[in-house]
């Protein structure tokens, strides 16, 4: 099976073709540097993304405070993470780096606040 990707390691955006057999990468072509090869392999075997969103805050200056995943999460778990985060509520005051949700979905990644809210 062949899969086409656009490399995002740098602004060049090389079109990459990956040949896959039984879930294993056979060849990577089209990349112009090593980073492209690594990107393509990671993207095929275990695509991950960092997740940024917001979480409801009680007694905050604003109704929500922005958060991010402390590390990348599997791409296909993004919406599951979103529903966990969207059902959570935290209390002001909040500061940058506060852990909002620990070890989300058992992925080994925390959801942490990325802004302050001193509260009202």
């Amino acid at each position: 099976m062949k899969k086409n990707l656009i490399c995002v390691s740098c602004p060049l955006g090389c079109p990459i073709e990956v040949e896959i057999e039984n879930g294993e990468v056979i060849s990577v072509t089209g990349n112009t540097c090593k980073r492209g090869d690594a990107y393509a392999r990671a993207e095929i075997t275990n695509p991950v993304r960092s997740l940024t969103t917001s979480v409801k805050v009680e007694n905050g200056v604003h109704p929500v405070v922005p958060v991010k995943s402390s590390g990348p999460v599997p791409k296909d778990k993004m919406f599951e993470c979103m529903s966990v985060i969207n059902s959570a509520t935290i209390k002001a005051p909040v500061k940058i780096g506060d852990v909002v949700i620990e070890n989300i979905l058992g992925l080994g990644v925390d959801i942490v606040a990325t802004n302050f809210d001193a509260g009202i």
Binding site: T52, T53, K68, T114, N115
Partner: peptide, 25 residues
């Protein structure tokens, strides 16, 4: 930056990937 909550800020200046509010912070 306060409303740009996605990451990608600060790679050149701080050498790490921050969200907008973190960079501003």
């Amino acid at each position: 930056l306060e409303q740009c909550i996605h990451t990608g800020f600060g790679l050149h200046y701080f050498g790490e990937e921050l969200s907008g509010p973190e960079y501003a912070g």
